[in-house]
């Protein structure tokens, strides 16, 4: 723009702007989505939501936004994260953590349902959706016990699901 002003004046600036791709293009949308997903995960979910369900939601939203060929999951995941971020931050300190966990679980269920609707008529997208779901659920189910019970690292936020996992561990220990 500085060059346009120097060499071509305001008509040059206006002409230059016409040739530019819009700022809110797909490339920048992806950047905003990545930053928003990471920001919400770290600042809203980790301190307020059970780590297992927070990670599952983060992974599902993140992978579906970038792994699926269609553009809609990216927009939907970003918007869902934005709304959930606001709700969790507003309600996080006011209500019991179990309610926040259940709300996050409901958001995950809705996101899975909506994403499935976009994929169901397309074989490749359906396969990718299945992979996304598998990774999003399996990774936290593996990572949480490894860190919590294997490496003895307390997770950032432990409530509904991690407590249930702990109960299950004691139950299994008592049985075997």
């Amino acid at each position: 723009m500085a060059n346009a002003i120097t060499y071509h004046g305001w008509p040059g600036v206006l002409r230059d702007n016409q040739h530019h791709t819009p700022w809110f293009n797909e490339y920048n949308q992806r950047f905003i989505a990545i930053v928003l997903l990471i920001r919400t995960y770290v600042y809203a979910f980790i301190p307020h939501v059970d780590f297992l369900i927070a990670t599952a939601l983060f992974l599902f939203a993140f992978i579906s936004a970038f792994y699926l060929e269609r553009h809609e999951p990216l927009i939907i995941s970003t918007l869902v994260f934005l709304v959930t971020d606001i709700v969790v931050l507003l309600a996080g300190n006011g209500v019991t953590q179990n309610i926040v966990d259940l709300f996050t679980t409901a958001v995950l269920a809705v996101l899975i349902f909506v994403t499935l609707r976009f994929c169901r008529n397309h074989d490749l997208e359906t396969r990718r959706f299945q992979t996304t779901l598998l990774v999003a659920l399996l990774v936290p189910l593996l990572l949480c016990p490894i860190f919590r019970f294997g490496l003895l690292v307390p997770l950032p936020s432990e409530s509904f699901y991690i407590d249930a996992m702990e109960q299950l561990r004691y139950l299994l220990k008592a049985r075997f």
Partner: peptide, 14 residues
Amino acid sequence: TAVFLPVVGVLCVL
């Protein structure tokens, strides 16, 4: 990459 990089993100956080 779209599958393993979000997992790397979780590992970075942990």
